[in-house]
Design a protein around this nucleic acid. Sequence first.
DNA 1: AATAAATACTTGACAAAGTCAAGTATTTAT
DNA 2: ATAAATACTTGACTTTGTCAAGTATTTATT
Lengths: 146, 146
Amino acid sequence: MPAQSHDINAIRKFNRFYTNVIGLVNDHILHSPYSLAEVRVLYEVKHTRNCTARQIMRAVTIDEGYLSRILNRFVQRGFVKRTKSRRDRREYFLTLTKSGEAKFARLNDASSKSVQAMVKHLSPLELRQLLTKMDGIQHILSKERS
Amino acid sequence: MPAQSHDINAIRKFNRFYTNVIGLVNDHILHSPYSLAEVRVLYEVKHTRNCTARQIMRAVTIDEGYLSRILNRFVQRGFVKRTKSRRDRREYFLTLTKSGEAKFARLNDASSKSVQAMVKHLSPLELRQLLTKMDGIQHILSKERS
DNA sequence: AATAAATACTTGACAAAGTCAAGTATTTAT
DNA sequence: ATAAATACTTGACTTTGTCAAGTATTTATT
């Protein structure tokens, strides 16, 4: 169903708008000692069961070698622990150490604060509407492959 | 009005989701010989009246020196023309040359195609709903400073 | 079982992207 | 007239990201 160019333009306008929103929200990370990629990796390690480098690559689009080095740094700094898989000894399971958890928690709080700031002026109704619309967009765009 | 943490989490989830959407849509640019920053600069030169480097910096968050070099490259490749302002001889007005316009048009078409692909499977109703929700989000988040 | 192909990850060499601070020219404020 | 601010440039640098080759191990093929 080919959308009219004016619809496409509206979507592109939203994309530009939301790119800026995300930029503002991510600003605290840019001013932190970690890159966006690093934070996303930490997030995946935290939230993925039996996390391996492969799994992270599936979730985040990132170069294999680059990821390897990011993980090395995290291991060196003591945030992430690698344990060789028994089933397949090419791969490692990745977990957060205690201090990795703490580091993640701090980054996470900062991110939440940042999002909090973005909606703090909204009325309860507006907030509810915002959430509904976000949910709707995810719903519509998720069944992309039909 | 402090939002509940579960609302904040829902927004963050949407942010992650839409970061990926934007990533997919921008993929063609990543595989083009231009960087995202360069394309945004070209966009600003195209759409800003009496465009100067300063104006671009206002629209796009970008380092002054980096921008200067991007503009230099565009001038060298003949996409952008600098004309010294009479009113203030420190600044230059930036315009697209004929070939800059052509280059921009091609990048622009590719971006549209990319967005087109993202919604091509949607029914007319879904598309209409998507646009309404996008518009609503912009509306809600735009009156941020109240 | 032996060989080939595929997979998970690492490493070296490099290129691109982005940052920082100092410098030039010009304009505006004191 | 002098100082401060503004617009832009440049050099030196760091970070970020990419590419391709390499190692170890597992899976598929004959």
